[in-house]
């Protein structure tokens, strides 16, 4: 029974605030049972990072500046990964989430090839954790086995838990109550998560900012993750001068 949901989850990433500390990456890794990325795995370009912070250098040596760009699954409305899946393991649900169904996935990796953002990851090996981390795994998240795709879920386990608790206690889901691990860990509140259907929510307000843009917008994927451009003080000075 397909029911139209009242929520449409989205995220705003204010690049002016990002300091590139990688706290979001670590928080995501811990929350979602993402396997450990060793140097060897990284060099094979098979590392799994549901969110990563891309670093760019701007300018020539003495006046060089580091620019950071956190990239996670954009939860596109027109997701290129979805139509290529032969077993419907990835689809768009009513809450605006791009869903990966682990038990349907057969590991063709078509979705990974078709994703312009490189945010889908394949489990080339059975994930293994050292004995000391055995009890660290999150019981609310499936541990993905070898041979299937995985990607950012906007911490669906938190969305489910918070909505369930709100429903049981008979209250409305407040804005800001619900945060994925990355947004919660961010020390500068670069990442803001919320309901884009609610015009008063913080994300909806931030999304209206004139600095807004979407990654690779020309591809027409219509992402639910909105970026706010970095404020360049020099350019602003020139503009006002």
């Amino acid at each position: 029974m397909a029911q139209q949901s009242e929520h449409k989850w989205g995220m705003v990433i204010d690049l002016d605030k990002c300091i590139g500390c990688q706290a979001c990456v670590i928080a995501c890794q811990a929350e979602n049972n993402v396997p450990l990325n060793t140097e060897e795995i990284f060099n094979q370009k098979r590392a799994i990072e549901w969110i990563r912070v891309e670093r760019y250098w701007e300018g020539e040596f003495p006046n060089v500046k580091a620019r950071f760009l956190p990239v996670l699954c954009q939860h596109c409305e027109n997701a290129p990964c979805e139509p290529v899946c032969p077993v419907y393991a990835t689809y768009h649900n009513q809450e605006g989430l791009n869903v990966q169904v682990y038990n349907r996935c057969v590991g063709t990796r078509y979705c990974q090839n078709n994703c312009p953002y490189h945010v889908r990851f394949f489990n080339y090996w059975t994930p293994q954790w050292p004995e000391s981390l055995r009890n660290q795994l999150n019981p609310d998240v499936t541990v993905r086995s070898r041979g299937i795709m995985e990607k950012c879920t906007f911490c669906i386990q938190r969305i489910r838990r918070t909505t369930r608790n709100a429903k049981r206690e008979g209250r409305k889901l407040e804005d800001g109550l619900l945060q994925p691990a990355c947004a919660q860990a961010c020390p500068t509140s670069t990442l803001t998560f919320g309901d884009l259907n609610d015009p008063d929510s913080k994300v909806s307000q931030l999304a209206k900012n004139s600095r807004n843009y979407k990654l690779l917008e020309k591809l027409g994927t219509d992402p639910n993750v909105i970026y706010l451009k970095k404020v360049d003080p020099k350019a602003a000075e020139e503009l006002h001068a």
């Binding site: 029974m1 029911q3 649900n93 809450e95 869903v99 169904v101 038990n103 879920t153 386990q157």
Partner: peptide, 16 residues
């Protein structure tokens, strides 16, 4: 049972 009681049958209800 989910169909009988009009409960959500979205995959993401149980699989995540």
């Amino acid at each position: 049972c989910h169909r009988d009681y009009d409960a959500p049958t979205d995959c993401l209800t149980c699989h995540y």
